[in-house]
């Protein structure tokens, strides 16, 4: 846990300035909040998403070149001005909020981030690998019905990763998935290899974790200590020749150590039994969630689409989910759900 939260902090710091354009449009629209900005956001959004889906690195340049030359000169001027105004070595959320949408568009190149289907492929592989090493406790599914997306869910929440890199969901799964998405959208990040069977184990396959062998060894040591301790104590009382104070002290020391070791073994056995039961229960709960197909997870393509439209407005748990085009919701908690972090 600590690991993943640290990671999320690190990646958040790194990835804020250059988030994919789709989400950044929303972020800056929500922060600036002026009418003119949002209207440009509309058409810029449309053109840039097509560029992303082509996946060609020169898509943005080609678009700007196809516009009039004076416009590109304006863009250059704006870019120079923005670079002068902001210090990008020390660029945080505050500066991000200060920037207008036009400034943002001028400086940041959306192609520095992996988005679209490639991102989803990467996220899927990475999530599977992380589930395999049990860093994330969730079921990972790729949903190709409707819009392509990766869904990870457990009994404690869910996360949906969309092709534009935005993540929505709730609970611990969302918190664990966010840094993964941020990492996967970076070209320089090398994915982990997922094993063939990357899913969580079957509840009935869970065996009690500590074998009896280690416990046996510890019990032998403990028994030896106890025997010696008792022997010393008896000898000190019985033998008149043994009058040193060292004997009872050593005896008590040995007895304490032996008692402690027996306690360790007893605790290991008890807590093991308890923990395997809890873990089995949790895996069963996960299977139950899998079987009943929650509303964010379509079982059939058509039904899934309909459910997805209806879901967010009716369900209370979808407060930070919802459509990306809903400006009110974005403004409410844009930092939480809409950014690809």
């Amino acid at each position: 846990m600590t690991e993943s939260s640290e990671e999320s902090d690190a990646t958040e710091g790194r990835s804020d300035p250059r988030a994919p354009d789709g989400s950044m449009d929303e972020a800056s629209a929500s922060t600036t909040g002026d009418g003119g900005g949002s209207s440009t956001a509309g058409d810029e959004d449309g053109s840039s998403t097509t560029g992303d889906e082509d996946g060609s690195p020169t898509a943005g340049d080609a678009q700007s070149a196809s516009k009039s030359p004076s416009e590109s000169a304006d863009l250059d001027a704006l870019r120079r001005q923005v670079e002068k105004t902001y210090d990008f070595d020390d660029f945080g959320p505050q500066e991000m909020a200060e920037m207008s949408l036009d400034e943002w568009e001028a400086v940041f190149d959306p192609d520095t981030w992996i988005v679209g289907e490639e991102l989803l492929d990467r996220v899927e592989q990475e999530l599977n690998a992380r589930v395999a090493i049990r860093e994330i406790f969730a079921v990972v599914e790729r949903v190709r019905a409707g819009d392509d997306r990766v869904v990870a869910y457990s009994d404690e929440g869910y996360a949906i990763v969309h092709a534009d890199g935005s993540v929505e969901g709730e609970g611990t799964v969302l918190r664990d998935v966010k840094p993964t998405v941020a990492l996967c959208s970076m070209e320089s990040y090398e994915l982990m290899d997922a094993p063939e069977d990357a899913s969580l184990p079957d509840p009935d396959e869970i065996v009690e974790g500590s074998g009896e062998f280690g416990n046996l060894m510890l019990q032998i040591v403990a028994a030896a200590q106890m025997v010696v301790g008792l022997g010393l104590l008896v000898a000190w009382i019985a033998l008149p020749s043994l009058s040193t104070i060292v004997a009872p002290i050593a005896a008590i020391g040995f007895l304490v150590i032996g008692f402690f070791l027996f306690l360790v073994v007893a605790n290991a056995r008890l807590s093991d039994r308890f923990r395997t039961r809890e873990f089995r229960n949790r895996l069963r709960a996960l299977e139950a969630v899998k079987d009943e197909r929650p509303e964010f997870l379509p079982d059939r393509p058509t039904a899934g689409r309909a459910e997805e439209e209806g879901g967010p407005s009716t369900e209370a748990e979808a407060i930070d989910g919802g459509d990306a085009s809903d400006p009110a919701e974005t403004a409410d908690d844009g930092t939480d759900s809409e950014r690809p972090l």
Binding site: R134, E156, G209, G214, E278, F279
Partner: peptide, 29 residues
């Protein structure tokens, strides 16, 4: 960063002990 609901006590990972042969020999000795 707090998560909603009470998840305290949830077991996130449970991997059985390795009990490798080398460790077994070592602990016996």
């Amino acid at each position: 960063m707090s998560s909603s609901g009470s998840t305290y006590g949830d077991i996130h990972r449970y991997e059985p002990a390795r009990e490798s042969t080398a460790a077994a020999i070592a602990i016996v000795l």
